[in-house]
Simulated assay, not measured.
Amino acid sequence: MCQDGAVATRTQRSPRRTEALSRERIVEAAVELLDTTGESGLTFRVLTERLATGPGAIYHHVANKGELLTVATDEIVAAALAVEPLASSPQDRIRAVALGLFDAIDAHPWVATQLSDSGWQATTPRILESIGRQVGALGVPEDDWFITTTVLMQYILGAAAQNAANARHVGPDANRAELLGAMAAEWAELDPGDYPFTRAVVGQMRDHDDREQFLAGIDLVLAGITALHLTGRQAAVHREP
């Protein structure tokens, strides 16, 4: 009887896993930790506790924290880029890519840091390819593909990162309308001689939507691409006999 009791105690203290540990499950748990605690909260010790496993099982799938961060970032970005637009023009596909990345970074702010730190490695070529194909489809000359595509990337990732940073700064429980209202009240009190423009746009700032503002920026960049690379060529084609 005592022996049976001892066996029962050991069984309670060491529950067996009911599913095999996979690379996908490790990445899923890592993303959950990154979303709730940030990069500093992702450690292999915490990860092993969450997955009820030993560090050896995790190291079998990923070599270190750096590789895990790279894989997690790539998974989030890949899902964002898989969003299909309702229309099929290059402009609409660029907007879909841009908004997918904006929403992904808004939901997972740590992704912005990883993309910034990774430079031209890892996930960056995936984004470059996704946008660059549409730049080519727009009719931009091949000699201008790199500059045009990277300018779009810089705007998309920079604006998305800034939006995520703003959200982190104010905190998850902040009331956006109240914060913008308080800022608008401060701007309205600025000296009209020194800040005529700022005072003039107080109402627009207070009532703006972040996603609409972001997409307006995409439209401005696309309009610039059209004016710089396409309008003159189209006009020349129309003038040909």
Rank of each mutant, 00 (worst) to 15 (best):
M1Y: 01
Q3V: 06
D4G: 04
G5S: 12
G5H: 12
A6C: 11
V7F: 05
A8E: 15
A8P: 07
P15I: 06
R16P: 00
A20I: 10
A20E: 06
S22E: 05
R23C: 05
R25V: 08
I26S: 05
E28C: 01
L34E: 13
T36H: 13
G38D: 08
E39R: 02
E39A: 10
T43I: 09
L47G: 07
L51D: 09
L51R: 08
T53K: 07
P55I: 05
I58H: 01
Y59G: 06
H60V: 05
K65A: 00
K65Y: 01
G66I: 03
G66L: 02
T70C: 01
D74W: 00
D74V: 07
A78D: 09
A79D: 15
A82D: 15
A87N: 10
S88K: 03
D92N: 12
R93L: 03
I94V: 12
L99P: 00
F102G: 04
P109R: 05
V111E: 13
V111F: 06
V111H: 11
T113G: 06
T123I: 09
P125W: 15
R126K: 15
V135Q: 14
L138I: 04
P141G: 13
D143E: 15
D144W: 05
I147N: 11
T148I: 01
M153P: 01
Y155R: 12
L157V: 04
L157T: 07
A160T: 03
Q162M: 07
R168P: 01
R168K: 14
H169K: 13
V170I: 13
G171W: 00
P172N: 10
A174I: 01
A177I: 09
A188D: 09
E189N: 11
L190C: 02
D194G: 01
V202A: 14
D207W: 04
H208Y: 04
E212C: 00
A223Y: 13
A223L: 14
G224D: 15
T226S: 15
L228P: 02
A235C: 08
